[in-house]
Amino acid sequence: MTGTLDPAVLVLEDGSRFRGNAYGARGRTLGEVVFATGMTGYQETLTDPSYAGQIVVMTAPHIGNTGVNDEDPESSQIWVSGYVVRDPSRIVSNYRAKGSLDDDLTAQGVVGISGIDTRAVTRRIRDAGAMRGGVFSGADATLDPEVQLSLVLEGEQMAGRNLSAEVSTADGYVIPAEGELLGALAVLDLGVKTSTLNYLAARGFEVHVLPQSVTLDEVLAINPVAAFFSNGPGDPGASDQHVELLQGILRHDVPFFGICFGNQLLGRALGFGTYKLPFGHRGINQPVLDRETGRIEVTSHNHGFAVEAEIGDILESTTGFGRVEVSHVNLNDNVVEGLRALDIPAFSVQYHPEAAAGPHDSNYLFDRFRDMVLAHRKDTK
Rank of each mutant, 00 (worst) to 15 (best):
G112C: 04
R161I: 02
K193F: 04
E180S: 11
L185C: 09
D171K: 15
Q148A: 14
V111G: 07
G138R: 06
I125D: 09
P145F: 05
N198L: 12
E180G: 03
E180F: 05
D127T: 15
F205K: 03
N198G: 15
V167K: 04
G134C: 08
T142I: 03
A184Y: 05
G204V: 07
V111I: 12
I116N: 01
L188V: 15
F136Q: 03
G204W: 13
A170H: 14
A159K: 14
L185Q: 06
A186D: 08
V147R: 15
S195R: 15
G109M: 01
G191M: 05
A130N: 10
A177G: 11
F136K: 00
L151M: 15
D117H: 02
P145E: 10
G172C: 07
V207W: 04
R123D: 12
V187C: 12
R161Q: 08
F136M: 04
G183D: 07
R124P: 00
L149R: 11
M131D: 05
Q157Y: 06
T169K: 07
T142C: 02
G172V: 14
E180R: 05
G172R: 15
V207R: 01
A130D: 00
L190G: 05
F205S: 05
G129N: 09
L182D: 03
V209L: 00
E206T: 13
Y173A: 03
S150A: 15
M158L: 13
F136Y: 02
A184D: 15
G204S: 09
L149S: 11
V152G: 13
V192G: 09
A128K: 15
E180L: 07
G115L: 00
A165V: 14
G129I: 11
D140W: 03
L143E: 12
L185H: 11
I113E: 06
F205T: 03
V110H: 00
A120Q: 06
E156P: 10
L181V: 13
G172A: 14
I113W: 14
V207M: 00
G183M: 01
Q212C: 14
V209D: 01
A120N: 01
G138P: 10
L200P: 10
S114M: 10
G204C: 07
D144M: 08
E156S: 13
I116H: 05
T196H: 13
S168F: 05
R203E: 09
N198M: 06
D189K: 05
L149T: 10
L210C: 06
V152H: 13
R161F: 00
L182S: 04
L200G: 10
P145A: 04
A186Q: 07
G179A: 02
L163C: 04
L200M: 05
G109L: 01
L210F: 12
